[in-house]
Design a protein around this nucleic acid. Structure first.
Length: 424
RNA sequence: GGAGAGGUCGCAUAGUGGUCUAGUGCGCCGCACUCGAAAUGCGGUGUGGGGCAACUCACCGUGGGUUCGAAUCCCACCCUCUCCGCCA
């Protein structure tokens, strides 16, 4: 959601920003309705004031026992009452029309975001580590999972359908270890507060973070108004919905692990092999609430926090700054972390670190007050995966596979997994 | 799931149809008094919207309704608490 003041006063800025994302917004239509809305509002305002005045007078007349005059005043107010009712209906319609249009306005890209059409125009801003060298062609993770007994995909399909994984034995243990390791890392070393959120949220929460009303088909519904979370971002960002925070509470940093559920309707073709794209997966999500002037510094440090997991495990990766054409609807700037998968022969997207500025805060009505007596302002909200487990799992298998078919566990992970090597 | 009680301005409370544009206490902010503080006194202290402004409108869990007028009456729903049932 964008600021109405901004839409009103700088429509060209909004139009241009949306155009950079390849979206044409109905700006003229919005301005037209807004003008009408304000006209109706002002007129309604005056009529309500008049009605209140007369009603108060009737009260006084009744108190003085002047019944006839009171009855006369009642007759006078009848027309006014009808006009007020009609005005209220009209106002509600216009307000709903405005909101509907506003849901279709994307967040505007930050000036530092490069223009572009799609993934090919993203800019790699840095690369960390070296790609491990192999004497022979390294195997993709889907060829390693079964021999090592880590995942049972056929049986997962049998019990749940395609797009699900059953982690077995050391695979299940590695999965659990990754989550514990990342949570410990982010909470103990990077200052995040741990959150274990519910996996089901209401429709209202999904509107707050922007998945609804546009992307209902991507979600698993478990009732009329309840849905499985597609990411812990949803419950964590909604924690402070409709609240006004104190200035000294900011910046707040949360690390939440959860299962994530995504239907991704019709997701045929891309990245379907192995465990790269699942309907259910685990993820540690980082969420920050901060003051507006700090959000771009916070984006850099959030990205660094997510990267630090990969660095601590010694995984080769790169960071891409997404271009306007590849970034999502509601963010203003976004870095993707891509981990090297030598078996697949590609970098896998393992984290997206985004600054939403006030876009989500405005939808979810999350504000803060700089000092007593001052007007509340919207906070800026950021989030990023830190990290998603299936692709991290896959990258570890591929980067640390050995000639004998075993996989070395990175040093810091060993206490969590309970072994230094996975072998058949 | 059943029965009962309840949801009012940060907190606590008052308010059962018309000076409620919601009172009072606490807290908070400002001012006065003071060398300073405490105490005391005075004033202020919610959110959103419209208007250049004076000002005004909406909001007493949410949504409807009755009425010239609703915190107050009616209907539906949500949530909290207590008890009962069921359950990991």
């Amino acid at each position: 959601m964008l600021d109405r003041q901004l839409l009103r006063e700088q429509p060209d800025l909004v139009r241009r920003g949306a155009a950079r994302k390849g979206i044409e917004v109905p700006m003229d239509r919005w301005l037209e309705i807004d003008a009408e809305y304000r006209r109706v509002r002002t007129e309604l305002n005056e009529r309500q004031a008049e009605q209140n005045r007369i009603s108060k007078m009737i009260g006084q007349l009744m108190g003085q026992g002047k019944r006839d005059e009171a009855e006369a005043a009642k007759a006078d107010v009848a027309n006014l009452k009808q006009a007020v009712n009609e005005g209220e209906v009209r106002e509600r319609e216009l307000e709903a029309d405005l909101r509907e249009l506003e849901f279709g306005f994307p967040n505007l890209p930050h000036e530092s975001v490069p223009d572009g059409k799609g993934a090919e125009d993203n800019v790699v801003v840095r690369t960390w580590g070296e790609a491990p060298q192999f004497a022979e062609q390294p195997r993709p993770h889907w060829d390693l999972l079964e021999p090592l007994g880590l995942v049972d995909l056929p049986r997962a399909t049998k019990i749940s359908g395609s797009g699900f994984a059953v982690y077995t034995g050391w695979g299940a243990r590695l999965q659990r270890a990754l989550i514990s390791y990342m949570l410990d890392h982010q909470t103990l070393k990077r200052g995040y507060r741990e959150i274990l959120p519910p996996y089901i949220v209401t429709r209202q929460s999904l509107i707050g973070t922007g998945q609804l009303p546009k992307f209902e088909d991507d979600l698993y519904a478990v009732g009329e108004d309840e849905f499985l979370i597609p990411t812990a971002e949803v419950p964590v960002t909604n924690l402070f919905r409709e609240e006004i925070l104190e200035n000294d509470q900011l910046t707040m940093k949360f690390a939440a692990s959860s299962a994530c559920f995504r239907r991704e309707a019709g997701a045929a073709g891309k990245d379907t092999r192995g465990i790269q794209r699942m309907h259910q997966f685990d993820k540690v999500e980082l969420v920050k609430y901060c003051r507006p002037e700090e959000s771009y510094d916070e984006l850099e440090s959030l990205t660094a926090d997510a990267e630090s997991v990969l660095q601590s495990l010694g995984l080769h990766y790169r960071v891409a700054l997404l271009c306007t054409g590849d970034m999502s609807f509601s963010n203003a700037k976004c870095y993707d972390l891509e981990v090297w998968a030598p078996g697949v022969g590609n970098f896998l997207e393992i984290s997206s670190c985004s600054n939403f500025e006030s876009y989500q805060a405005r939808r979810a009505n999350i504000r803060f007050r700089r000092a007593a007596g001052e007007k509340p302002e919207f906070v800026h909200i950021l989030n990023g995966s830190g990290l998603a487990t299936p692709r991290l799992f896959a990258a570890i298998l591929e980067q640390f596979q050995q000639p004998d078919g075993s996989v070395l566990i990175p040093e810091p992970l060993r206490p969590y997994v309970g072994t230094d090597r996975l072998s058949a």
